[in-house]
Nucleic acid binder design. Structure first.
Lengths: 215, 215
DNA sequence: ACAGATTTGAACTCATGGGTTCAACTTAAC
DNA sequence: GTTAAGTTGAACCCATGAGTTCAAATCTGT
């Protein structure tokens, strides 16, 4: 009997290959044979671990989104203890969030999710529902702490979080709808997003870009 | 011989039906027979007017995006002569832009465009390229005029336009990834977006939401 | 009414790919 | 070595749907 560890490895390899191939071809064009090849495995093995093409898709997508969310949350943790230079740490975190967002795998998963909502309505719970807006809400938590500490205006933290994320991802998706932009451009976008965000949400004696008014 | 007008009508009916069915099923799942039925036409007629399923898709998508862009541009024209209450007219225009963006047909076209970029890379010219960023650039033009008239800060108009659009569409897409939100929520989002936008881009003696600081 | 172009419905060909079957084979535990 | 679970490759069945063919029906300008 093959060891349990070996089974898990095969299953994981299949799920990874599935995401890769689905990303490359889309759901319909991806054929199970190609996924099996990509995983270095025979076709019946795929059906042995994951009964359907449909459940294969579902499992692969949930795993991939889980990983992506985890990466975002890890990045957000750096906002827990912002030093004294809020703008700088915000820019760093924003840039990293944007890197996650523009990562090739992330783009592919979002595209698939977006494309196949008609056929897999249950997958919408990955982006909506309880575990859905996790990233936005985690950011909102951080922003709320910052507001309470007097470092941001007292505004609805959920709204602020949504808008900051929009300022980051909107321009990026608009200018580079397909492939990932060079890191320089990401930095430019992140810088501009944080600048606009701070102009709108900085603490009430407004501290604008260059000059700080009475610390 | 059927009149030339009749031919055009049939072709148009086919293109409309194509968008409808592609939106409903996605490219692969949509079968030509169903499109023919939806258009009230026989299958060979479809192949008579549009040689391929692929070219059918291409033609339908270009027509649909053209119409959508036109609607956006018409809405933007109302920014040409903003009365004295900039915030109000901005909110109105923003709400209408958002309505266009969230329109069912618009969503479907964006989804299809996004989903089939792998198979139809040439369709990317609809969203990028010369005729691509037309809406953003038209908005940038309006904002540039407003800045020159001293009613907005002197900032890069393209950036401002991108960010305003991001503030509008980002939250909307985040909260209602599939169907169109109720109009009340659109208004809330538009209001919040314009508020943040004006906080960041209002003319230099900053006039914030309620109170004007030393005119 | 006539002619030329178009449309129609139905049947047809053909390629693709999901899913299954099965006998041979590998692997790890005992 | 034996055993049992798991894997493999190849062949297979079958549904689906793109695209074509064609004779009959329909339309339109004159």
């Amino acid at each position: 009997m093959p060891t349990a560890r070996g089974r898990i490895d095969k299953r994981q390899a299949i799920l990874d290959a599935a995401i890769t191939v689905f990303a490359r071809r889309g759901y319909d064009q991806a054929c199970v044979q190609e996924i099996a090849d990509e995983a270095g495995v025979a076709k019946p093995t795929v059906y042995n671990h994951l009964t359907d093409k449909a459940t294969l898709f579902r499992e692969a997508m949930t795993a991939a989104t889980g990983a992506a969310v985890a990466r975002h949350l890890a990045t957000l943790d750096r906002l827990a203890v912002p030093g004294d230079d809020l703008r700088t740490v915000l820019e760093e975190v924003a840039l990293d969030l944007l890197r996650c967002h523009c990562d090739e795998r992330s783009r592919a998963v979002r595209r698939l999710l977006h494309a196949e909502t008609a056929r897999f309505p249950d997958l919408l719970s990955l982006v909506r529902g309880p575990s859905g807006h996790r990233v936005t809400e985690a950011l909102a938590d951080r922003l709320a702490r910052l507001a309470l500490a007097g470092r941001l205006r007292g505004a609805d933290p959920s709204l602020a979080a949504e808008q900051l994320i929009a300022l980051l991802t909107g321009p990026a998706d608009l200018r580079w709808p397909v492939s990932s932009p060079p890191d320089d451009d990401l930095a430019t976008i992140a810088h501009a997003a944080v600048d606009t965000f701070l102009r709108a949400f900085a603490a009430d004696p407004p501290v604008s870009q260059e000059r700080a008014i009475h610390t």
